[in-house]
Simulated assay, not measured.
Amino acid sequence: MSVLLEFAMFPTSAECREGSSVSHKVAKIIDMIDQSALNYQLTPMGTIVECESVKEALGIVERAYEQLEECERVYSTIKLDIRKGKLERLDGKIASIESKLGRNVKH
């Protein structure tokens, strides 16, 4: 099974911002994901993580929130793409589109 988790999470409360920036808090979440050794892709609007189960994906979300627990208010969006019998979809989906465009880019 492959579960693609796409999510964004950041504090909205003033005590957890540096001016209008929350990147220092988001960086804590990305560091946690990086240390998990899961395949992920950081995007300007969120992060995509490939997990082996829904439970693992939701665990990533929970651990992300733990990085922001001291914040009074946290905003998050979460999307899951669950597919049985497929692996390495994070890279495979991009490669499929690039091949259709005639590109020979290796991920």
Rank of each mutant, 00 (worst) to 15 (best):
residue 87 L to F: 11
residue 24 H to A: 13
residue 69 E to I: 12
residue 63 R to S: 14
residue 60 I to T: 06
residue 20 S to D: 11
residue 15 E to C: 11
residue 40 Y to K: 07
residue 75 Y to V: 08
residue 68 L to E: 05
residue 12 T to Q: 03
residue 49 V to F: 02
residue 34 D to F: 06
residue 17 R to D: 06
residue 41 Q to D: 10
residue 88 E to W: 03
residue 39 N to Q: 14
residue 12 T to R: 08
residue 22 V to M: 10
residue 87 L to I: 14
residue 88 E to D: 15
residue 1 M to S: 12
residue 30 I to L: 15
residue 52 E to A: 13
residue 21 S to F: 01
residue 58 L to Q: 00
residue 18 E to F: 12
residue 22 V to W: 08
residue 51 C to Q: 07
residue 11 P to F: 09
residue 69 E to W: 07
residue 50 E to H: 01
residue 50 E to V: 07
residue 46 G to H: 07
residue 13 S to M: 04
residue 13 S to A: 12
residue 90 L to V: 02
residue 43 T to Y: 09
residue 19 G to F: 08
residue 102 G to Y: 08
residue 50 E to C: 04
residue 4 L to F: 05
residue 96 S to P: 02
residue 26 V to R: 03
residue 56 E to G: 08
residue 90 L to N: 00
residue 80 L to H: 01
residue 47 T to K: 02
residue 46 G to I: 11
residue 39 N to Y: 10
residue 25 K to C: 10
residue 34 D to G: 13
residue 63 R to A: 15
residue 8 A to P: 00
residue 59 G to Q: 13
residue 83 R to C: 07
residue 31 D to K: 14
residue 25 K to Q: 15
residue 85 G to N: 15
residue 65 Y to M: 06
residue 24 H to P: 08
residue 74 V to T: 05
residue 33 I to F: 09
residue 44 P to F: 11
residue 34 D to P: 00
residue 107 H to R: 14
residue 35 Q to V: 08
residue 60 I to A: 02
residue 106 K to W: 06
residue 81 D to F: 13
residue 66 E to S: 15
residue 76 S to C: 13
residue 70 E to P: 00
residue 1 M to I: 04
residue 5 L to P: 05
residue 101 L to W: 12
residue 29 I to P: 01
residue 38 L to P: 10
residue 88 E to C: 02
residue 41 Q to C: 07
residue 5 L to V: 05
residue 19 G to I: 06
residue 46 G to Q: 11
residue 64 A to W: 05
residue 18 E to M: 13
residue 11 P to Q: 08
residue 62 E to F: 09
residue 21 S to A: 12
residue 87 L to W: 05
residue 63 R to E: 15
residue 57 A to M: 01
residue 3 V to Q: 05
residue 68 L to V: 04
residue 86 K to T: 11
residue 50 E to I: 02
residue 6 E to R: 06
residue 34 D to A: 14
residue 23 S to Q: 05
residue 26 V to M: 10
residue 20 S to H: 12
residue 64 A to F: 06
residue 102 G to I: 06
residue 29 I to K: 04
residue 46 G to F: 11
residue 80 L to E: 05
residue 82 I to C: 15
residue 50 E to W: 09
residue 18 E to L: 15
residue 54 V to M: 07
residue 48 I to Y: 01
residue 74 V to C: 02
residue 82 I to A: 09
residue 16 C to V: 03
residue 23 S to G: 04
residue 98 E to G: 00
residue 74 V to M: 00
